[in-house]
Structure formats: structure tokens, C-alpha cells
Design a protein around this nucleic acid. Structure first.
Length: 775
DNA sequence: GAGCACTGC
């Protein structure tokens, strides 16, 4: 930090006028001196902003600053600045509801900075976002608004990238990042205030963070918490945060007219296509956004829209259509197409062209497309559900909530008034749809979350104060998993192993594999596999080139299974000359491999920091792959299936009937396999599968393969035989050892006797010698 | 013989 007296904000601490004047010459700035931390008024803040030079940098404000400032003053949130400050001054928690366009995300954090002057105490203000792009782009915008360089007084912090400095006063970060920080600083002592933005999205991280902030606030009366949300579901937030006061800020969007179908639609895909084409045929200019559930459905809809659109254009003299798909796994170049302009009329003065974007939920929150005037909403989305009984997370096409429907409709009113066509009845909207989507924490496996909570110092999970408490059975499953992995002891306290596992930002099973790999001399390989399993599928299989893609994949196939195949792919990726071209040639997703590489680097650094040796076995040793598979077993012994005599796999303990996923490279069916994922679709598949040995299971996870408590099945009988064989073998070894020990002891005793005799003889001789010499 | 909503550390 530069000299504290250079900072005009600190005027009140150093005799005001003198210090403030020092930064910019002779004229003292009264507005700076007037700011008293925690007691500023809107007028004082505005005066500070209107002055000639920045209180933070001491530099004169630029022309650009002044023009942005004029726009900032017109934002709806600015009209409520005084009210907001009053609430913050007299409350520890404030809930703020602001619709799109209110300016809350950019302005509220700045009001907080001016009010608290956190750097006086060497502290900061954090504003969390659920997504990385939001954290980075908003930070850039606010840096411009405050006339500072991004990364200096205003910065951001996201995975793989910390763009902050010792001067940083305001930090935008992902909520996951702040959680990680809390794991090493449980009281978040570096922050004088935390602003939680987009809280209505109720992501896993936001929910955990809200609970944590409540906990911290009870112990740190100096900290302020502002919770910002976009919905009207504010009462729930207020109640959760000890009856916090509410401030509502109007948004700035255009009206959207809503239309419902008079009768329920039997086939929503067909209805959606029809509706989109009808809009094209009869509504004025403006682009269409159509929400569907997944990649396959979207590609199918695009094909149909193009075909029928051509037909429509011929028959009804409509304008040309541009149909573009949008989903997250679409290559970035293809995603860019959503921003292209609608096509020109085919003849001068002819019917205008139109763009139709067919998208998943990405377009609901993550991506904003300008120029959308019409939204078609069939009312469905793929949603994650968790079944604790079989410990399986899966995706299910389900009806969306009223809040989500509202969010979708809002996408039509960003640039001018729009229309939203809902493909369900108004009655259905009111009586069938739930108010809010169930928060993610109620639909997820909590293994990793529970571990994080333990690390955050929250031990009493039963009384864990979440906005929506999770099901006891889900908590039980999480505790059970962590206990079996050895991350928690019998009293559910974090073990040293659990502490190590919690350092890694990956699934606990994967982290256990990495940590255990040290025992098998293969941490380097375990890190690569863990990274490859933490990114979206790397294998591409385009519909028009399935055979070619399969052949390309076969080149990487490893006889032991899919994990080793992934390792082959990673190694090949690292040693190829032109990664983009190479990925293209081999039907591999460049994005996923690139991201696996970054993750691996992060994991490697964490391993190094935790004194986990980074080692490999000799590649030419016959043990090279078995050792890696043993490390895999150490993490995934709970995800093992056994091939029954009828040719079907049963998962161990749960006795679920499963099939090897057709994408597996394992053509022969090994008797015992460990799997990464249980995929619940039309059938039950196990995906990413590698052969393991039953004796490893008994060796590596004896507490889980405790045969006394094992439900009966073929696998159990085989394990019992092996266990018996092991016992007999051990008995034999013991007997041999005992026999040998006995013999050794006898020999030793014999030798000792002889030694003693010899010694005695020697002593006698010596004595005699001495006697003789005396004489 | 078949998927893969979306995020995040």
C-alpha cells in the first residue's frame, strides 16, 4: 500500500484538510473530509463523486469518468441511495430486491465502499456472483466507473485468476471463491462487508455462503451483509436474515405481453415449432427465442424449423429465416452465431428476415441476446435430481417454476416491448407450476459440501441453519461416504486425511484417489485422471461421423478400461504439436482438454503445497497400470460392480442391475469393475469403467468390504472365498514365521551359549596372561 | 449399443 496519508479518504484520521490537500496541491477537498465511516449521507457521497479528483488514487478524474457518472446518476438505485445508507447504518443485514436494469450490481458495492472506507483498516468489500463472466465483466465496468485500473483498487477473483492487489478495496468474486477463502479464514476477517448478489438463483454455493455469513455475522458485529435478489420472494430472505429490512428498487425493462394456449399441448416440441413459425408468418419484425431442454432436442428442432421455414417462405411469401442452436457444449465459434443479425429481405422492400435462437436454459440467466422480441416457452427444462437411496444424481426433464417462466418472459423485453408465448394454459401456470425452482441444495449429493462445512468449522450439521434445510437422508449419505473414505472419524470430525481431501476442489472420491496415489507411487497419473474426470466429456461423436469418431477413440483405448484411456488421451494431448488441429482430427473436445490441463495444474499445486510427493512409477514396469488402478480403487471402492453368472452387472452392496455404458472401451466384461458415474436414463448404465481386482477391494477398503455386514450376493461369496484364502495364507505365513522365529531363537540361544563359553574362556586366558605378566 | 440443463472451487 502507498502512504496512507496520500489517501484523501482518510482525511478525517489525519486532521482532515491538511492530509486531503496534500494529495492534490493546496486546495483541500471538504467532501472527502466530511466522510465519516459508517455514517455517510447520499449527499456527501455524491459530493465526493462530483469532486475533481479520486479519493482512492489521488488522481484527477478523467473526462470519461464524468460522462459515466452522469449515467450512473440516472439509474433507479441512485434515487434510493439515502434510504439504502440509512438501512445499512442501523442494520447488520439488508435485503435488497432489484429487477433487471436497476443498477444494483454496479452501484451498491460503490456506495458501500464510500460508506465504510474499508481500506482505512486494511480491509475490503466483497461482492459475490454465481458466475465467472459476471464477476469479471462487472469488475471491469466498476473499475471504469471509479476511474481506476482493473486489478488495482477494484478487482476480481475467480478460479485460475486472481486480479487483485494490495490496493484492492472492492473485490468481485464468484461465491465459490469466497467459500474457498473462508476455509482458511473462517471469519472472513479481511472483509468489512459482503454483498451476496443474485441470491435468488439459490445455487449450492450461494446457499452455503448465506448460512456461513449468518454464522459469521453473529460473531462479528462489525461486518455488514447485503443480500441482493431479483425476485419478489423477499420475505423468505428477510426472515432468514433475522427479519432484515427490505429495500425494493424498480428495474428498467419493457413490458412483455403474455399469451397462453387455450388447451394443454400434447407434444411440446411440435407446438413450439408451430408457434415459432406462426410468429414468423404473422408478427412484426423482431427475433425469436425458443427454450428447449437439451442438445439433441435443439438440433432436431433446428432441422425442422429450417425445413418448414423454407416451405413457408415459398408458400406464404415470408422473409428469410436464420435458425441458430445454443447450448453450453456448443463450440464457441458456433455460439457466436446467436449474435449475428437477422437476414436481409430477399428482395428490396420484401418481407423482413428473422433470427430464431433455439436454446437451453443458458439463455435464461447466463447469456443475454439483444434484439429478442418474442419468447416461446414450452415450460420444461432438464433439472438435476438426487436419489439418496441409490446415491444417484440424474437429469430429468421437468416443468419449470413460475419464477423461471417469468425470467424467460423477461428475455423478450430487454430492448423494446415484447411478447411471450407460453405453451401451457393459464390455469396450469397458476395451479401446476411451483412458485420457485427447488434450490440446488435440495437436489444434490452433498458429499463435497459436507466436507467443506466441516472445514469451515461448522460441525453441528443437524442444526445447520440453511434457508432450506436438506433432507436428513441426504446428509446421512454424505456423512457415510466421507466416513468410508476416511475423511471423517467415528465422531464425524475431520481427520488429517479429510483435511487433505478438502483442499482439493474436486469430488471427495477423486481427491481421495489423488491423496492415496502417493502410496502407490503414481500421483502424477492420478492427478491427470482426476482432472480429466472433472471436465465435460472429451470425446465428440457428431451424428454425421459416428464411425470415424469411434475409430479415433479406439486409438486411445486401453485394455484396463476407460480411466486409463483418458490418461492416454491426456498424455497424447500434452505431447502433440498443434492441440487445436490435433483435437479436431481426433474428434476430441479442445475446450474440455484445455480445461482439464488448467485443473490439473491447480491440483498439482495443491498437492505440492500439502507435501504430497509428485511421483510416477517406471512406465515399463508391469506394475505401472495396476498401481494406478489401486489408487483408483482407494477412491472408488464404493462404486464397484460385479459381473454375475447371468452376464449382468450388479453394483456392490446396493445390488442395482447395471449395464456397461456403450461408450466404454471395455469390450470383454471383466468380473469386477470400478465406475465413475451411475447414469440413470432409459436403462441404468455405469459410465467410465475400469477393471479392478477383488483382493484389492479387501486390502484397500476392509472397513467397507466388511463381509459380516455385506448383503448376500454372488460377489459377496467370491469375496468371502478370497478373504478365506487370504486368512489361510496369512495363517500359513504366521505359522511359518512362528516356526522360523522359534528356530532363530534356538539358534540364537545356542550361539549365545557358545559366545558366553568363548568369552569366559577368553576372560580366563586374559587373567592368566595378566598373572603371568605380573610375575 | 447411447447421451450430455447450467454453474462453481
Amino acid at each position: 500500500m502507498s502512504d496512507i496519508r496520500d489517501n484523501p479518504y482518510l482525511a478525517h484520521m489525519h486532521g482532515g484538510a491538511e492530509a486531503a490537500g496534500g494529495a492534490r496541491g493546496s486546495e483541500p477537498n471538504k467532501a472527502f473530509a466530511a466522510l465519516v465511516p459508517g455514517k455517510t449521507t447520499a449527499a456527501q457521497q455524491e459530493a465526493t463523486e462530483d469532486s475533481d479528483c479520486s479519493g482512492l488514487t489521488g488522481r484527477a478524474f478523467s473526462q470519461k469518468y464524468k460522462s459515466i457518472l452522469a449515467k450512473r446518476r440516472e439509474l433507479p438505485v441512485n434515487k434510493q441511495r439515502q434510504k439504502f445508507l440509512d438501512l445499512v447504518h442501523s442494520n447488520q443485514f439488508v435485503v435488497l430486491v432489484g429487477e433487471t436494469g436497476s443498477g444494483k450490481t454496479t452501484q451498491i458495492p460503490q456506495y458501500m465502499v464510500l460508506d465504510m472506507l474499508p481500506h482505512v483498516e486494511g480491509k475490503m468489500i466483497a461482492c459475490t456472483q454465481p458466475r465467472r463472466v459476471a464477476a469479471t465483466s462487472v469488475a471491469q465496468r466498476v473499475a471504469d466507473e471509479m476511474d481506476v485500473k482493473l486489478g488495482q483498487e477494484v478487482g476480481y477473483s475467480i478460479r485460475f485468476e486472481d486480479c487483485t492487489s494490495a490496493r484492492t478495496v472492492l473485490k468481485y468474486c464468484t461465491d465459490g471463491m469466497l467459500l474457498r477463502e473462508a476455509m482458511s479464514d473462517n471469519m472472513l476477517s479481511r472483509y468489512s462487508a459482503v454483498i451476496l448478489d443474485e441470491a435468488h438463483e439459490r445455487t449450492l454455493n450461494t446457499d452455503v455462503l448465506m448460512s456461513l455469513m449468518k454464522n459469521i455475522a453473529a460473531q462479528r458485529l462489525d461486518i455488514k451483509i447485503v443480500v441482493m435478489s431479483a425476485t419478489l420472494d423477499s420475505e423468505k430472505f428477510q426472515k432468514y436474515f433475522n427479519d432484515a429490512p427490505l429495500l425494493t428498487v424498480p428495474g428498467r425493462t419493457y413490458p412483455v405481453e403474455i399469451y397462453y394456449t387455450p388447451e394443454p399441448e400434447a407434444d411440446y416440441l411440435e407446438a413450439a415449432i408451430k408457434t415459432a413459425l406462426q410468429i414468423h408468418a404473422s408478427e412484426p419484425e423482431g427475433d425469436i427465442l425458443l427454450f428447449l431442454t437439451g442438445e439433441e432436442e435443439i438440433e432436431e428442432a433446428c432441422r425442422l424449423l429450417r425445413a418448414r421455414g423454407d416451405d413457408l417462405i415459398r408458400r406464404a411469401n415470408c422473409g428469410p429465416l436464420l435458425v441458430v442452436p445454443l447450448y453450453s457444449t456448443l463450440p464457441p465459434a458456433m455460439q457466436q452465431k446467436i449474435f449475428s443479425k437477422a437476414p436481409e429481405p430477399r428482395t428490396k422492400g420484401g418481407a423482413p428476415g428473422r433470427k430464431i435462437v433455439v436454446s437451453t436454459n443458458v439463455a435464461e440467466t447466463s447469456l443475454t441476446i439483444d434484439g429478442i422480441v418474442y419468447v416461446v416457452d414450452p415450460g420444461f427444462a432438464k433439472q438435476k435430481v438426487y436419489n439418496p437411496r441409490v446415491r444417484v444424481e440424474s437429469l430429468l426433464v421437468s416443468p419449470i417454476s413460475r419464477a423461471a417462466a417469468q425470467q424467460r418472459a423477461g428475455r423478450a423485453g430487454r430492448t423494446r416491448p415484447g411478447k411471450c408465448f407460453r405453451l401451457y394454459t393459464e390455469k396450469s401456470f397458476n395451479s401446476d407450476l411451483i412458485e420457485q425452482t427447488y434450490p440446488e441444495i435440495l437436489r444434490s449429493n452433498l458429499g463435497s459440501i459436507v466436507l467443506q462445512l466441516k472445514k469451515l468449522g461448522i460441525n453441528d450439521l443437524v442444526h445447520l441453519d440453511l434457508m432450506d434445510p436438506c433432507a436428513p437422508e441426504v446428509l446421512m449419505r454424505a456423512l457415510e461416504l466421507l466416513h468410508y473414505l476416511g475423511a471423517l472419524d467415528d465422531d464425524a470430525n475431520l481427520t488429517p486425511l479429510g483435511l487433505a481431501i478438502s483442499e482439493f476442489p474436486i469430488d471427495p472420491q477423486l481427491a481421495k484417489m489423488v491423496v492415496s496415489a502417493a502410496d502407490y507411487g503414481c500421483t502424477n497419473e492420478a492427478l491427470s485422471i482426476a482432472a480429466m474426470l472433472s471436465v465435460p466429456n472429451v470425446f465428440l461423436r457428431p451424428r454425421e461421423a459416428q464411425r470415424a469418431a469411434d475409430m479415433a477413440k479406439a486409438e486411445f483405448a486401453h485394455m484396463d478400461g476407460d480411466h486409463m484411456t483418458l490418461l492416454n488421451v491426456y498424455h497424447a494431448f500434452k505431447s502433440c504439436a498443434d492441440p487445436t488441429q490435433w483435437c479436431w482430427d481426433n474428434f476430441l473436445q479442445y475446450r474440455s482438454l484445455k480445461s482439464a490441463d488448467s485443473i490439473r495444474e491447480q491440483l498439482r499445486r495443491i498437492a505440492a503445497n500439502n507435501e504430497i510427493p509428485l511421483v510416477s512409477n517406471d512406465f515399463n514396469s508391469p506394475d505401472y497400470y495396476p498401481q494406478i488402478r489401486k489408487a483408483l480403487t482407494a477412491g472408488f471402492f464404493m462404486q464397484v460392480a460385479h459381473l454375475e453368472r447371468n452376464g449382468q452387472y450388479l453394483t456392490v452392496k446396493d445390488n442395482q442391475l447395471v449395464l456397461l455404458h456403450p461408450s466404454s472401451v471395455l469390450e470383454r466384461k471383466p468380473e469386477w469393475v470400478a465406475y465413475n458415474e451411475f447414469a440413470l436414463t432409459k436403462r441404468h448404465y455405469i459410465r467410465t469403467v475400469t477393471e479392478v481386482k477383488p483382493e484389492w477391494l479387501l486390502d484397500i477398503a476392509p472397513h467397507y468390504y466388511d463381509l459380516e455386514s455385506f448383503p448376500p450376493c454372488e460377489g459377496k461369496r467370491i469375496l468371502e472365498k478370497i478373504a478365506l484364502r487370504n486368512t489361510i495364507f496369512r495363517e500359513e505365513q504366521d505359522m511359518k514365521k512362528r516356526r522360523k522365529d522359534k528356530k532363530d531363537r534356538k539358534d540364537r540361544e545356542g550361539k549365545d551359549k557358545k559366545d558366553k563359553k568363548d568369552k569366559d574362556k577368553k576372560v580366563k586366558k586374559d587373567k592368566e596372561k595378566r598373572h603371568r605378566s605380573k610375575d
